[in-house]
């Protein structure tokens, strides 16, 4: 490597131009940076992915021999009412839970980014629900949402309201799950928080001088600045909502309203011995989520945003 500091200004420019030209001939170093993930995925992840695709054209009870059935699984899915029901349950949940969850996480993050006393304690407490997982969460919620002796309905009874049946009432299953997802809003809070914290001071001050109030500043300064993180949360929120599994696996829900698509796939594969059919479900599922993601890309400036920062 040549020592730039010892060169004259002209030499420097000439050298940089030369380098620039060199760069054009060589493939972008970007490939080298992204290579590790792709290599490891091609070694460890591609085979399972391809196999699950092949599986979707078979009738395979997992514990026996697969038989090739062509497109039959996909054709069956078109008329499978319980599959449609679980798709509908999942989509409805995503439509409600994603925006509410994003708004909640973002609001908490805004508060956590402000100058408020005792924030370090609040931050930890708000993040707490994210650290418990698995069966404990399900059990805790079963107790909170119990229609007769649950926490919420007991509290409502104190102020004279008869609480709903929550998970035991088909109409209240969806709200129950949205409520549960809100409890975990603290996990999403962190991703917003780190980027809100990076919003340059000048931007705020410039806006303040021009008389922008609190909300105006959020919309004019903060949101545009953290846009990439918003997209991250939007897309991950959609994927997460569609892949809802854990608490639904433990809690279920009355009238098939807790039968999320992942639950359906899991049961079909491992309880009903129809791995091929479950694979077909997974690929339909994948296409739906992918289509929604592409729509997000199309109607936002997801790709454009940072192009000026690229080399």
């Amino acid at each position: 490597m040549e020592d730039l500091s010892k060169m004259s200004e002209q030499e420097k420019i000439a050298f940089l131009v030369k380098q620039q030209k060199k760069k054009k001939r060589r493939p972008s170093p970007g490939y080298l940076f992204i290579a590790p993930w792709f290599i490891s995925y091609f070694i460890f992840g591609l085979f399972p992915m391809v196999l699950s695709f092949i599986m979707s054209f078979t009738d395979w009870p997992v514990i026996g021999k697969p038989t090739f059935v062509g497109l039959e699984n996909y054709r069956d899915l078109l008329v499978d009412r319980s599959f449609h029901n679980s798709l509908w349950v999942t989509i409805r949940y995503a439509i409600v839970a994603v925006p509410i969850g994003m708004a909640a996480s973002f609001t908490i993050a805004l508060i956590m980014a402000s100058k408020t006393k005792g924030l370090s304690v609040y931050r930890t407490i708000y993040y707490l629900p994210a650290v418990v997982s698995g069966v404990a969460v399900g059990i805790i919620w079963r107790w909170i949402l119990d229609p007769n002796n649950g926490l919420i309905n007991n509290l409502l009874a104190i102020i004279g309201i008869k609480g709903p049946g929550w998970l035991t009432d088909p109409d209240w299953v969806l709200p129950s799950y949205v409520l549960m997802s809100l409890w975990g809003a603290g996990a999403g809070m962190l991703t917003y928080l780190v980027s809100i914290n990076e919003v340059p001071l000048d931007l705020h001050e410039a806006a303040e001088i021009q008389g922008a109030g609190f909300f105006k500043r959020i919309f004019l300064v903060v949101i545009p600045y953290v846009r990439p993180i918003l997209y991250y949360n939007l897309i991950m929120g959609i994927i997460g909502a569609f892949k809802k599994f854990n608490d639904a696996y433990i809690l279920g829900g009355a009238g098939n309203q807790g039968q999320f698509i992942m639950l359906q796939i899991y049961d079909t594969a491992f309880t009903y011995f129809k791995m091929g059919y479950a694979s077909a479900m997974s690929w339909i599922f994948l296409i739906i989520v992918l289509a929604i993601t592409l729509l997000v890309f199309k109607f936002t400036d997801f790709w454009k945003y940072s192009q000026e920062n690229e080399e």
Binding site: M262, S282, L286, V289
Partner: peptide, 12 residues
């Protein structure tokens, strides 16, 4: 790869 249901790739 994030969207693929993990439950279906367990066996493969």
């Amino acid at each position: 790869t994030i969207m693929i249901p993990g439950e279906i790739t367990i066996v493969p």
